[in-house]
Amino acid sequence: MTQFALFDTAIGFAGIAWNDAGLVACHLPERDPETSRRGFLRRFPDAVEAEVPTRLAATVEGIRALMRGEKADLANAPLDLSRTPEFHARVYEIARAIPPGETLTYGEIAVKLGDRLLAREVGQALGKNPWPIVVPCHRVTAAGGKPGGFSARGGVETKMKLLAIEGAKAAAQADLFAG
């Protein structure tokens, strides 16, 4: 059974969904908790809203800390990878190892996977990431200091906000070219 919980952060209401194996989804902060709730129920129509279980309390606190600009580590958050293609799981593992405030490019992840020509596939995998923040796809940028894409609500603007919260150099570089 899939359950989910919403919780307040410094920038809005976020959420997690889980089953017995681990997290099945995360939802980036929204101003309105109803938007997050509808998002979970669209993806998991049979999900039940519940209290955050003790085993996921540290994950919620880590997400809250990141949204306050603290350097929290979510590497131990349990993920249910049972519906995740193997290539995506490998991309997510590399992305999870990027510390807050730092970035890698799609190409750098492709090289870590053994083939620099996989950069586009890396981007596609990150575009389907069901665990934003926990799998920090916002920390993956395009070559040449460009932010690259971001499939969450708000697109690249949201990505840049998250990087700015974490104090990433990529966010500061982007401001040089704004306007």
Rank of each mutant, 00 (worst) to 15 (best):
Met1Leu: 11
Gln3Arg: 14
Phe4Asn: 03
Ala5Trp: 02
Ala5Arg: 04
Leu6Gln: 06
Ile11Arg: 09
Ala14Asp: 05
Ala14Met: 07
Ala14Ser: 14
Ile16Pro: 05
Ala17Ser: 12
Ala17Asp: 06
Trp18Phe: 10
Ala25Lys: 01
Cys26Pro: 04
Cys26Phe: 04
His27Met: 11
Arg31Pro: 06
Arg31His: 10
Arg31Tyr: 07
Ser36Asp: 01
Arg37Lys: 12
Gly39Ala: 06
Leu41Val: 02
Arg42Trp: 03
Arg43Asn: 06
Arg43Gln: 05
Val48Ala: 09
Ala50Cys: 11
Val52Gly: 10
Val52Thr: 15
Ala57Gly: 12
Thr59Gly: 12
Val60Tyr: 03
Glu61Ser: 14
Glu61Phe: 02
Arg68Glu: 12
Gly69His: 12
Glu70Arg: 15
Asp73Ser: 12
Asn76Trp: 03
Asn76His: 08
Leu79Lys: 01
Leu79Asn: 02
Asp80Gly: 06
Leu81Tyr: 09
Pro85Glu: 07
Phe87Ala: 09
His88Thr: 07
Tyr92Thr: 08
Glu93Ser: 11
Glu93Phe: 00
Gly101Glu: 14
Leu104Asp: 07
Tyr106Trp: 06
Gly107His: 14
Lys112Leu: 12
Leu113Arg: 00
Leu113Phe: 01
Gly114Thr: 11
Asp115Trp: 02
Leu117Tyr: 08
Leu118Asn: 02
Leu118Tyr: 03
Gly123Leu: 01
Gln124Leu: 07
Gln124Arg: 10
Ala125Phe: 00
Gly127Thr: 04
Lys128Gln: 08
Pro130Asp: 00
Trp131Ser: 05
Pro132Asn: 08
Ile133Leu: 10
Val134Thr: 07
Cys137Phe: 01
Arg139Leu: 08
Thr141Val: 14
Arg153Glu: 09
Glu157Lys: 15
Thr158Gly: 02
Thr158His: 09
Lys161Tyr: 14
Leu162Lys: 01
Ala164Trp: 04
Ala164Phe: 01
Glu166Thr: 12
Gly167Asp: 06
Ala168Leu: 08
Ala168Val: 13
Leu176Gln: 11
Phe177Thr: 09
Phe177Asn: 07
Gly179Val: 11
Gly179His: 13
